[in-house]
Measured scan of single mutants.
Amino acid sequence: NQASVVANQLIPISTHLTLVMMRSEVVTPVGIPAEDIPRLVSMQVNRAVPLGTTLMPDMVKGYA
């Protein structure tokens, strides 16, 4: 099972991601792979992401 990136807190819209905001967890459905966490740092979310939500490629500007 592959770990995905999950929000560690509420991430407001247009926030630049930091390591503190993300954790890796095995979830269904599978989202952005956990090994991409370093790549996600300083990218922006294009919507509010609630605590515990799996980050999907379409939620992060410039990821997909």
Rank of each mutant, 00 (worst) to 15 (best):
N1D: 15
N1K: 08
N1Y: 15
N1L: 13
N1S: 15
N1G: 15
Q2C: 11
Q2F: 13
Q2L: 10
Q2V: 10
A3Q: 12
A3M: 09
S4H: 01
S4W: 02
S4E: 01
S4Y: 04
S4M: 02
S4D: 02
V5Y: 01
V5S: 02
V6E: 01
V6C: 05
V6N: 01
A7P: 02
A7R: 02
N8C: 11
N8D: 11
N8S: 15
N8R: 10
N8F: 04
Q9S: 12
Q9K: 09
Q9D: 07
L10D: 14
L10I: 11
L10R: 10
L10Y: 13
L10P: 10
L10A: 14
I11N: 01
I11E: 00
I11C: 03
I11R: 00
I11S: 01
I11A: 02
P12Y: 05
P12A: 08
P12C: 05
I13V: 14
I13W: 09
I13A: 14
I13D: 10
I13E: 15
I13G: 09
S14F: 15
S14W: 15
S14D: 15
T15V: 09
T15Y: 14
T15W: 07
H16M: 13
L17T: 00
L17W: 00
L17M: 06
T18Y: 03
T18C: 05
T18N: 05
T18D: 08
L19M: 14
L19T: 10
L19K: 10
V20F: 15
V20L: 13
V20D: 12
V20S: 13
V20W: 12
M21R: 00
M21F: 03
M21V: 03
M21I: 03
M21T: 03
M22Y: 00
M22I: 08
M22A: 01
M22N: 02
R23V: 07
R23K: 13
R23F: 04
R23G: 07
S24G: 15
S24H: 08
S24D: 07
S24Q: 08
E25D: 10
E25Y: 06
E25G: 12
V26R: 04
V26P: 08
V26L: 12
V27L: 04
T28E: 15
T28G: 06
T28F: 11
T28C: 09
T28Q: 11
T28L: 08
T28Y: 10
P29V: 06
P29S: 04
P29E: 07
V30N: 11
V30S: 13
V30M: 13
V30Q: 15
G31I: 00
I32Y: 01
I32M: 03
I32K: 00
I32W: 01
I32F: 02
P33K: 08
P33F: 09
P33T: 08
P33Y: 06
P33G: 05
A34Q: 07
A34E: 10
A34P: 05
A34C: 08
E35S: 11
E35I: 09
E35N: 11
E35L: 08
E35V: 12
E35R: 06
D36H: 13
D36W: 07
D36N: 11
D36Q: 14
D36C: 11
D36P: 00
I37C: 05
I37L: 14
I37H: 00
P38T: 12
R39K: 15
R39Q: 11
R39S: 11
R39I: 08
R39P: 02
L40P: 00
V41W: 00
S42K: 13
S42I: 03
S42V: 04
S42Q: 10
S42Y: 09
M43T: 04
M43H: 07
M43E: 04
M43A: 08
M43F: 08
M43Y: 06
Q44D: 03
Q44F: 06
Q44P: 06
Q44K: 08
Q44R: 10
Q44T: 15
V45A: 05
V45R: 00
V45H: 00
V45P: 01
V45I: 07
V45E: 02
V45T: 10
V45D: 02
N46I: 15
N46W: 06
R47S: 14
A48G: 10
A48D: 15
A48I: 14
A48F: 09
V49T: 04
V49P: 02
V49W: 04
V49A: 04
P50E: 09
P50C: 07
P50A: 12
P50W: 05
P50N: 12
P50M: 07
L51T: 13
L51R: 11
L51H: 13
L51K: 13
L51Q: 14
L51D: 12
G52Y: 05
G52I: 03
G52W: 04
T53R: 11
T53L: 11
T53E: 14
T53F: 10
T54G: 01
T54Y: 02
L55A: 02
L55C: 02
M56F: 10
M56V: 07
M56H: 10
M56T: 12
M56R: 08
P57I: 05
P57E: 07
D58P: 06
D58C: 15
M59C: 06
M59P: 00
M59H: 09
M59G: 03
V60D: 02
V60Y: 01
K61H: 15
K61Y: 13
K61C: 15
K61I: 14
K61F: 13
G62D: 14
G62I: 04
G62S: 10
G62E: 09
G62A: 08
Y63N: 04
Y63S: 03
Y63V: 04
A64I: 13
A64P: 10
A64N: 12
